[in-house]
Simulated assay, not measured.
Amino acid sequence: MLADLETLVTCESPSSDLEAVARSADVVARLGTECLGREPSYEVVDGCTHLRWSFGAGPSRVLVLAHHDTVWPIGSLATHPFVVEDGILRGPGSFDMKTGLVMAFHALAALPSLDGVTLLVTGDEELGSPSSRALIEAEATGCAAALVLEASADNGALKLERKGVSNYEIRITGRAAHAGLEPELGVNASIEAAYQILAIAALGDAALGTTVTPTALTSGTTRNTVPASGSFLVDVRARTVAEQLRVDTALHALKPVLPEATIEILGGPNRPPLERTMSQALYEQAGKLATALGLPPLRETSVGGGSDGNFTAGVGTPTLDGLGAVGGGAHADDEHVVVSEIVPRTSLLTALIADLLETP
């Protein structure tokens, strides 16, 4: 497994570089074929290369989901080389999530039969899965379970909840005027933006875990001109579909405050939430298997970040996320994996898939 990890990590695969992702897909395909005894189908969407292994003649019961792209640019190996020292593995993308991908290969290879299993490995997760979302949702629909090999949370915790993500751009149009000679003739887009930012930030609900955060802001052209236009971005995270829709409705109902100003709301929900109700039963099933295997009790948590597990849960498929590597430092200089956790987590994954396939 460590040798396979070195092969994957040393093949750099930044999401935005389609040629690099294609090269990585070839490496992933070769390793997967060696483990699983079957070549994948290539699914190239908008130039991005995804891979799919499907086993059995009938519909899939279990979807195993991983991605092979990373946030690390080409050349990162020069400053962040693949290395294993003192039980810690390091390298760009090792934690998020090439270790999880290797775990998937070896967990599936240990099963006596793969009938009813699909393994989908996408190439654009770090971009928000723009080209793979439809593929993920189609593969997940009708499955008994989706198992997501994203890295675990702190101390190996599985992720039973992920907030839904919505992205917006608020565009404001005013009217320019000379700021010194006749500012009263202008319609100040910066002031309108300030009103809207305060109103939008107030839509958050801390008690329900809903965050509504205005982020990047631009407005105006020169120091002595009343701004004629401006825009800002809004990041929304919500634990439930109801909250996600509440904020969406409120944002699209916004009205300008300044006379003659106009506002335009672009965007909307990007990922539905992974709600606990979609994960709890699978978590309890995995917990019993961990006990039977003599593993420590499982841990669980809720996180704000999204994954492709949001999409599988969004189509009604029970989903368990965070089954991959134990470690930390995703997207950061300290990205690392605890080597001693790789085999036990893989054994648990094998047992969980087998149990799901045997369950009527």
Results as ranks from 00 to 15, higher is better:
223 R>A: 10
6 E>I: 05
77 L>F: 14
161 E>I: 04
69 D>V: 12
152 S>M: 00
215 T>E: 07
45 V>K: 05
289 L>T: 04
62 V>A: 10
16 S>L: 13
309 G>F: 11
238 A>T: 02
237 R>G: 08
26 D>Q: 15
99 T>Y: 03
152 S>R: 01
13 S>A: 15
36 L>I: 14
93 G>Q: 15
15 S>H: 08
171 R>G: 12
166 S>F: 09
232 F>P: 10
301 T>G: 04
191 I>W: 09
293 L>E: 10
128 G>Y: 13
206 A>Y: 13
250 A>Y: 09
36 L>F: 12
246 R>E: 13
75 G>K: 03
32 G>C: 15
316 G>W: 01
289 L>H: 03
268 G>Y: 11
240 T>Y: 09
163 K>N: 02
82 F>E: 06
162 R>Y: 07
264 E>H: 08
39 E>C: 13
26 D>C: 14
201 A>W: 05
61 R>Q: 15
275 E>R: 12
208 L>K: 13
261 A>D: 04
339 V>M: 02
161 E>M: 12
234 V>G: 06
357 L>V: 07
290 A>P: 00
88 I>P: 00
25 A>G: 15
278 M>L: 06
272 P>S: 13
199 A>W: 02
290 A>K: 08
126 E>M: 14
89 L>I: 08
57 A>K: 14
92 P>W: 14
189 A>E: 03
266 L>I: 12
134 A>D: 11
317 T>G: 04
335 E>L: 04
327 G>T: 05
235 D>G: 05
156 G>K: 00
181 L>E: 06
302 S>C: 07
31 L>Y: 00
304 G>H: 01
161 E>L: 11
311 F>I: 00
23 R>D: 14
122 T>G: 07
340 S>G: 06
288 K>I: 15
151 A>G: 05
274 L>M: 14
54 S>A: 11
203 L>S: 03
102 V>D: 09
175 R>L: 08
135 L>T: 02
231 S>D: 07
331 H>L: 03
173 T>Y: 02
201 A>P: 01
226 V>I: 11
318 P>V: 02
218 T>D: 04
132 S>W: 03
171 R>S: 11
6 E>Q: 10
136 I>K: 03
18 L>A: 11
264 E>P: 01
166 S>A: 13
247 V>R: 03
338 V>E: 15
175 R>V: 01
119 L>T: 06
58 G>K: 10
11 C>W: 00
184 E>K: 00
308 D>M: 02
308 D>A: 01
347 S>A: 13
336 H>M: 02
304 G>Q: 01
156 G>W: 01
140 A>F: 02
113 S>N: 13
270 N>E: 08
42 Y>H: 13
267 G>F: 08
114 L>E: 03
136 I>E: 05
51 L>C: 13
315 V>E: 04
48 C>A: 13
209 G>V: 10
140 A>P: 01
76 S>E: 13
158 L>N: 09
271 R>I: 12
99 T>N: 05
169 E>R: 15
161 E>W: 00
42 Y>C: 10
112 P>E: 09
248 D>N: 10
355 D>I: 08
146 A>D: 03
108 L>A: 10
333 D>H: 13
44 V>P: 09
245 L>F: 05
356 L>S: 00
43 E>G: 05
347 S>R: 14
94 S>H: 14
194 A>F: 06
